[in-house]
Design a protein around this nucleic acid. Structure first.
Lengths: 209, 209
DNA sequence: CGCCCGGTTGACGAGCGTCAAGGTCGGTGG
DNA sequence: CCACCGACCTTGACGCTCGTCAACCGGGCG
């Protein structure tokens, strides 16, 4: 290393390393430079639910600015590079400013409300299609296909299903060219954007509804 | 009326009257004095999901302070009395202050994250028991039984089930004295508090698992 | 008095979970 | 270079939870 640690303005996390554990006091939030992170809740019987995703360019977790502590654990889903922003310095130039962080917080709330609707009222296929459409939009890529660096187990823990069922749904979507499955990597294509927020049960209704 | 309207510091809403419609700009938040309200999302096929509940003493909706507008409609579930707090006057004495409103916002976010876990990973019985336990706690009543002024259809739209299935679960809970069903009114009892966050599948495991 | 909303109940079936047995890929050590 | 191992993915059989459909009841309100 030819750089002094103190000069490096970002931190690296390994895959599955924690950015925060349940109950931790936090004196900074992170601005994610590269990689994905998630907030999750683990029940004592092993069931897990992911309740938030953090993608490159997003703040993690903006509400620490107000609460000062993490209620739920947050961990990296991939190798992750993030810039810690000390809570006291948020209004320093180049740190985004309180205004932006609060705006990110409101956005996160609205996303959570959407997820409640999806988990409560949508079928397995709808949940997965809408998850992928949401991720495409947040990644802001113009490419036809974007890489989704999630395992099927992780997708299952986001959409509230089992890995086995996620697998079956993904293969059905692959037949319709909504996604591509190449080995262990998942590509979401633009094909499916029209399906979002569309059908009640987007499946077996081809002819004369 | 022997009072001039302008002197009345609170507003009344009829049951099912809207406090805000989707997309409305809002120049005030409400502090609920009496009655219940909810935020909900309506899909075009008629499915509905309630994504937040507001009880007496709570702010509705705190994040309007930051966003200035309602993304989703909010309506009264009962007759409702609420005190509007103009956004510009939030820091005036007697209005709670920005600090309290932001704190309410963080609380609302944490509740939403909890609901994601419940909808994604819990059975029908668990969802209903935990809803009622949560409501008991928020009402802060010391009484053994508290009145829950929700129809079974409304409960269904909160916990992501059908009214028919909510009905069956409530009757099973009534057999175990977790709730009381008197005509159309629902009473939640203390009996069930211990069940919360306890069982994986809180049902058929009486003898030697 | 009659309507309508909300609750109640049964029969039936679909969607999704569970269990179990491979298969495939990438990494690691010899 | 190869053998081994552990994640992760894949696939089938089976069954439970919950949704759907339908009929009926009961009370409050116009």
């Amino acid at each position: 290393m030819h750089k002094r640690i103190s000069e490096v303005p970002w931190r690296q996390f390994r895959r599955y390393e924690h950015l925060a554990r349940a109950g931790d006091r936090s004196d900074c939030i992170y601005c994610i430079k590269d990689g994905w992170a998630c907030r999750y809740e683990l029940l004592r019987d092993g069931r897990r639910q992911i309740t938030a995703l953090y993608l490159p360019g997003e703040y993690c977790e903006p509400h620490w600015l107000l609460s000062g502590q993490a209620r739920l654990p947050v961990m990296a889903l991939t190798r992750l590079t993030a810039r810690p922003i000390p809570l006291g310095q948020i209004d320093h130039p180049g740190e985004g400013g309180v205004r932006n962080v609060l705006h990110a917080m409101v956005q996160a709330m609205e996303r959570q409300a959407q997820w409640i609707t999806r988990l409560g009222r949508k079928s397995a296929t709808e949940r997965i299609v809408e998850l992928l459409a949401d991720l495409r939009a947040r990644l802001g890529s113009d490419d036809d296909k974007v890489v989704i660096p999630l395992t099927q187990r992780e997708i299952a823990d986001i959409v509230g299903l089992t890995p086995v069922h996620v697998n079956r749904v993904l293969h059905r979507l692959a037949e319709q060219n909504c996604v591509h499955l190449c080995g262990r990597s998942l590509l979401a294509s633009t094909q499916m954007d029209h399906s979002t927020e569309q059908h009640p049960c987007a499946e077996k209704q081809g002819e004369q509804g």
